[in-house]
Amino acid sequence: MMAVELSTAKLEDLARTARREIINAVVVAKAGHLGGPLSAIDILVALYFRVLNIRPLDPTWPDRDRFILSKGHSSIALYTTLALRGFFPLEELSTFDAMGSRLQGHPDMNLLPGLDMSTGSLGLGFSAGVGVALGAKLAEKNFTTFVMVGDGECNEGIIWEGAHVAQRYALDNLVVIVDENNLQQFGWRGQTATDRLPPYSDKQLAHRWEAFGWQVSEVDGHDIDEVTHALTRARGASGSPVAVIAHTTKGKGVSFMEGNFRWHSRVPTVDEINQAMVELGAPPSLTGA
């Protein structure tokens, strides 16, 4: 747990910093994803600064809570959060995606301390999370396992295989967070080529998790207090696993990226970087390209 509880305003500020770091890292790497990391970052900040029982200086502490980023292509959001939380120096973010870096395009648990699973192929991290939670029950450990999946990721059949098994074993020590940003990489076409349909409409996802016997709550995934509250309640649940459906906006925080599927994985131009940094409240000295 945090030695000092950080105020909501402070965490919101931290999330803005994280967004700038995410964009910087992708710009330096000339590769990576932005839409998904920006939709997930407020949740990650709430998790790592308020919810998870972890020790950044002892990342393999056996009783720590586990977090698995099953939507592994949002790795830069997790790396940024880990760096801000003190797992490794913030400067290392500039090595994202580089040869020999611990910050691989998709998370590699053997390289970077603080990663509880290697992920990248969608759906897989969730099934591993089911295994971690099941093992924790078997070993009579009290930690909670949190897994973040995307809404598009819920297309994968393995998600529902795991959801079934988690319910059967009553894994109330497992919390899945669905980052429902309503876009996937390309998705289904709407009225026009730029109009993409969401992976699931309205309450479909909530109903599916409920139908699999999970407790479901829905939150605004950009409201750090709301997310904290929902995750804290989820970890105290009993009898069945919990799905927290976080309603988010892909590309959140940068006006021209928000809700635009083309920003799933695109590197911004100099002008776009400048505008993004201004919108994210960067000091003027940092915005000059």
């Binding site: 969730f126 295994g131 099941l134 070993a139 795991g162």
Partner: peptide
């Protein structure tokens, strides 16, 4: 996947 998760905690 479950087996991988189990292995991470020592099984």
């Amino acid at each position: 996947g479950v087996a991988a998760g189990l292995a991470t905690i020592g099984f």
